[in-house]
């Protein structure tokens, strides 16, 4: 009985530390923290930003176009003389909102199906995996193009399309994780106890794949922002007079050679959001991050 104490490679202090990354007490280094702050900032802007817009985003407020940064127009004006700051604040709602809705839909569906396939196995798993793999064989931007060409662009169409593009990847990721957890003895024990499949999925498997799944959700969010911006840049995303950040860049691309702030600030907005999400995820504690790329 005497040696039955925690083994000495992991002195008492470390066993405590190892379990520290749980709940809100996660540790990040400063790069991860900066990322988190920027993400939260844009989230907040998307929620309440438009209320603080100095001008109505669709209104022409300046006689000049591609106006410079002034005290009146903090980020200059666009090709029609609309206030860029107001349009970026409004654009945040489109970019962040559509991407978030898309990624949530894609990941929840993907993760649920992935876990079901891992637990059920057999035909269900094989048919679903084959089908979604085949779907993965379509390049994402291309799929977006085709769908938008077919049904026209609207926000629900964009959300559903983006979700459809990224659902198979999420499924594959979650399934791979769940298959690993599913072979663990604690799942076998629960199964031998006679537990139902929903219990196995929700109580035994989900808590053990949640960390990597959330990290994966972050990465997919970045991809969705990029594809959405790309679609908008091609004129197939959010339709005028509304504009997400990608559409703002497209509208004002003529101002590029003039170095107009109207094209620079929306670009910075996109880049700051996507880079900060990547920074945040890259600096998550490795236990949560360990994802198969």
């Amino acid at each position: 009985m005497m040696a039955d104490t925690p083994s000495s490679t992991t002195p008492k202090g470390t066993t405590r530390d190892r379990t520290a990354p749980k709940g809100p007490g996660w540790r990040f280094n400063w790069v991860g923290r900066i990322g988190l702050v920027i993400i939260l900032f844009w989230g907040l802007v998307a929620l309440v930003g438009p209320a603080f817009a100095p001008y109505p985003p669709g209104e022409i407020v300046d006689w000049d176009y591609f106006g410079p940064v002034t005290g009146k127009f903090w980020m200059g004006t666009d090709y029609l003389g609309r206030d860029i700051l107001s349009r970026i604040l409004m654009g945040a709602r489109y970019t962040v909102g559509i991407a978030l809705a898309g990624v949530t839909l894609a990941c929840s569906l993907g993760v649920i199906l992935g876990m079901m396939a891992a637990v059920a196995g057999g035909w269900f798993d094989m048919i679903l995996s084959r089908l979604l793999d085949a779907f993965n064989g379509i390049p994402s931007l291309l799929f977006g193009l085709v769908v938008v060409a077919a049904v026209g662009s609207s926000i629900p169409v964009l959300v559903l399309t983006l979700a459809a593009i990224y659902m198979p990847g999420s499924y594959r990721f979650a399934r791979a994780l769940a298959v690993n957890v599913n072979t663990m003895d604690f799942v076998t024990v629960a199964r031998a106890r006679g537990e139902s499949t929903p219990y196995l999925i929700l109580r035994e498997i989900l808590p053990n794949i949640l960390g990597p799944v959330l990290a994966d959700l972050g990465l997919r969010f970045v991809f969705i922002v990029l594809v959405l911006s790309g679609l908008s840049f091609l004129g197939l995303g959010v339709q005028p007079p509304n504009a997400d950040w990608g559409a703002l860049v497209r509208e004002n691309i003529e101002g590029l050679s003039l170095g107009a702030p109207a094209v620079i600030f929306p670009s910075i907005a996109i880049a700051s959001l996507t880079i900060s999400v990547n920074m945040f995820i890259d600096n998550l504690p490795s236990k949560i991050r360990d994802r198969s790329e």
Binding site: M184, D185, F186, V189, A192, G194, R203, E204, P207, N208
Partner: peptide
């Protein structure tokens, strides 16, 4: 296909306690 009572009366314990206990419970 076994009854709950049968399952209860016969239990199995695995070799590796590390993998036999759900680390999140």
């Amino acid at each position: 296909n076994r009854s709950k009572e049968q399952l209860r009366r016969l239990q199995i314990v695995f070799q590796l306690a590390d993998t036999a206990l759900n680390p999140n419970h």
